[in-house]
């Protein structure tokens, strides 16, 4: 299938990626080629949908006991942060509320 410019923009927004106009054009072209190639899957006779990895599993899942362990020291938790304020991660102001 041919990906339109709008589709690429939409997908980039979903993926939180900003693209330059050149990138947009380039990726639209390349992704269209890949999708064309990938589309010959449609020629196959397929088993009923819904099967996926682990479908065959039937043994009860071993679970983890509810025993707390010490967390990492706060300095370590923040050690890789690009920006922080006191014990918080710091980000540019969030304007929109909720999700």
């Amino acid at each position: 299938m041919k990906l339109t410019h709008d589709q690429v923009t939409h997908v980039a927004r979903l993926a939180s990626l900003s693209l330059t106009p050149e990138e947009e054009a380039h990726f639209a072209e390349e992704l269209s080629q890949i999708l064309d190639y990938v589309e010959n899957l449609n020629r196959l006779m397929l088993p009923p949908p819904g099967l996926h990895v682990g479908d065959g599993v039937s043994d009860p899942t071993p679970l983890h006991p509810d025993i707390p362990r010490p967390s990492v020291p706060v300095e370590e938790a923040l050690s890789n942060a690009p920006d922080r304020s006191g014990q918080f991660f710091r980000v540019p102001r969030i304007l929109e509320e909720g999700r």
Binding site: I67, P68, F89
Partner: peptide, 27 residues
């Protein structure tokens, strides 16, 4: 009301100082 979190073993507790109940998994 579990003692630890759903997918890691950090304590499940309200009101602790910021970012003191975290580990690589929940980060």
């Amino acid at each position: 009301l579990t003692r630890s979190k759903l997918f890691c073993r950090c304590e499940n507790r309200f009101g602790a100082p910021p970012n003191t109940l975290v580990c690589p998994v929940c980060l």
